[in-house]
């Protein structure tokens, strides 16, 4: 099992949804794939900032609750806090392309 499923939010979400066994998909993978349109498949570019291999939960929460400055403040408002936790946890485990473009 994926180590990050032990996070509180992921456990709460799993309990809430009484989720099916996750052999076909890691938690957060499908939600995080929504970021790929602008940040590349698995968050590894091309496009806007590379988001693979980083824990962006605090950044996402900050963007969600601060006044809108651009498109990301809007997109962050499109998910529950628990979903943002799942997205951030998943992306933190995905390798970037290590091209230094962050």
């Amino acid at each position: 099992m994926h180590p990050l499923t032990y996070s509180h939010a992921a456990l709460a979400m799993a309990a809430l949804l009484a989720a099916a066994p996750t052999s076909a998909a890691e938690p957060g993978r499908l939600l995080a794939s929504q970021c790929a349109h602008c940040h590349g498949t698995n968050g590894a570019g091309p496009g806007f900032e590379e988001i693979a291999g980083k824990d962006l939960f605090n950044d996402l929460i900050e963007m969600k609750y601060r006044p809108v400055e651009g498109i990301m403040e809007r997109q962050a408002r499109g998910y529950t806090d628990a979903q943002l936790r799942l997205i951030a946890d998943y992306l933190s485990t995905v390798p970037g392309n290590a091209d230094g473009d962050d």
Binding site: A20, A24, A25, L30, L31, C38, Q75, Y79, L86
Partner: peptide, 22 residues
């Protein structure tokens, strides 16, 4: 795609889903 992969593995579809457009 995720729903198909789950169906092929005998699993129910994920309900914790979101879609977006920008």
């Amino acid at each position: 795609a995720d729903a198909i992969v789950r169906a092929l593995a005998g699993e129910e579809p994920d309900q914790n889903i979101a879609t977006s457009s920008a």
